[in-house]
Design a protein around this nucleic acid. Sequence first.
DNA 1: CCTCGACTATGACCGTGGTCATAGTAGTCT
DNA 2: AGACTACTATGACCACGGTCATAGTCGAGG
Lengths: 199, 199
Amino acid sequence: MAKAERGPRERMIFSAAQLIRRDGVVSTGMREVAVDAAAPRGSLQHYFPGGKAQLVDEAVGWAGGYAAGRVERFLAALPEPTPSGLFASMVRQWTDEYEADGFAGGCPVAAALVDCAEAVPSTRKAASAAFSTWTGAVAEALTEMGVPGERAGPLATLMISSLEGAILLARAERDVRALTTVARELGPVLDAAVREKGG
Amino acid sequence: MAKAERGPRERMIFSAAQLIRRDGVVSTGMREVAVDAAAPRGSLQHYFPGGKAQLVDEAVGWAGGYAAGRVERFLAALPEPTPSGLFASMVRQWTDEYEADGFAGGCPVAAALVDCAEAVPSTRKAASAAFSTWTGAVAEALTEMGVPGERAGPLATLMISSLEGAILLARAERDVRALTTVARELGPVLDAAVREKGG
DNA sequence: CCTCGACTATGACCGTGGTCATAGTAGTCT
DNA sequence: AGACTACTATGACCACGGTCATAGTCGAGG
C-alpha cells in the first residue's frame, strides 16, 4: 500500500484502518494506532476529540472512499470494460494481497460492523455509508458498461456481498479458493446483464 | 430460538454464540456469558479449562453444526426441492429474524473470524471447520437435487459467500434489502445448474 | 461417618486501554 | 516582547475482564 505522506491525522486514520482490518476494532488500541502511524499520542485527542468512536468512524469512511476509488481505477485500467472484468479486478486485489502478504487482514468495514454495529450507532451508520459509497461506484461502473439502470444496483449488491463473504471464507481457510470461485461463478452472470449492443 | 434445556455447559456455549453474534468476541465477557446462561461463574473454568479461547471455539463449532442442520431441515421442508428454494430458505431465516427481532446479530463465525483470525489460531481453524461443515451440507443438498458433483461445491461456496456478505450489508443498512436481492439474483443461476431431468 | 469427586462460589490479582488533566513547545501575528 | 493558537507530551485515573486461588456444597459409595 502506498504510504501516503500526508499529515499525522491522515496517517492515524490509515493506520487505524489497517489495524482494525487485522485485529478488529476492540483489540486495536489507540496508543497502538499512534505508534503505527508514527504520530504523537497527544495528537489523538487533539485530532479526534470524539475519542475512539470518531477515529473508527473516520477509518471506516476512508475505507469506503478507498474502495470506491479503486473501482474507478479498475474500470480505467480495463482494456475492454466488462462487468466480469471489473469483478475479477476487485477479487484479484484480495487474492494478490493474500498471496503476497498472507491472510492477516479482512475488510475494515466488516470488522467495524461486527464489533460496533450494536454498541456504537455512529459506526454502524459509517459502515452503511461506506457500503453505499462503494456500491454506488460499482453500480455506476456497471451502468457505463451497458447494464440497464434497474439491474445495476442489485448486481452491485450481489458483487459486494459475494466479495465480502468470500473474503471471510478465504481468511478462515487461508486459501483464496472462495475468492476465485465467486469470481468464476459470477462472471458470466454479470456479463449476461449487459444489453446487447453489436449483435 | 428454542432454549435447549440441556446442561449448563451447553447453555454456556449457546449463550456465548448469541452474545458473540451481537457484540463480537472481545466485547463479550466470560462473566456475561455465565449470567446469560444462568450458569454459575465457577463453572466456566470447570467446563472450559482452556479459557475463553476454548469457549469461543466451541461456540463457533456449535454454530457450524447448527447451520448445517438447518440446511437439512430446509431441504426436508421444501415441497419441491430446488437450489433456489434452498437458498431462499437460508436467506429467509435471516430476514425473518431481522424483521422480528431487529438487526442486533450477525453470524457468529464471521464475528469470531474478524476478532480472532489473526490472534487465536485455534479459533481461525474452528471457523474454517464451521464453514466447511456448512458448505458441505449445502453441497450435498445441491447434489441430491441434481446438481452435477463438480458444480455443487463451487455453488455452495457462492451461496454462503453471498449470504454472509448480504448479512453484513443488511446489518449495516438495517434493511433486509441486500438479503432479498442476493436471493432473487442468485436463484435462477442456481436452478440453471440442475441437470435437466424431465425435458 | 468419612471421603472423594464433581461442581459451585467468590475474592484477588494484574494487565490493558480509553479518557482526562496538565503542561510543555513552536510558530505567528501585532 | 507578548499573546494566542496549534500541536505535542505524559502521567494518572478508572473501569473492565480473564485468570487464578481458595474454599464451599452436595451426592454417592464404602
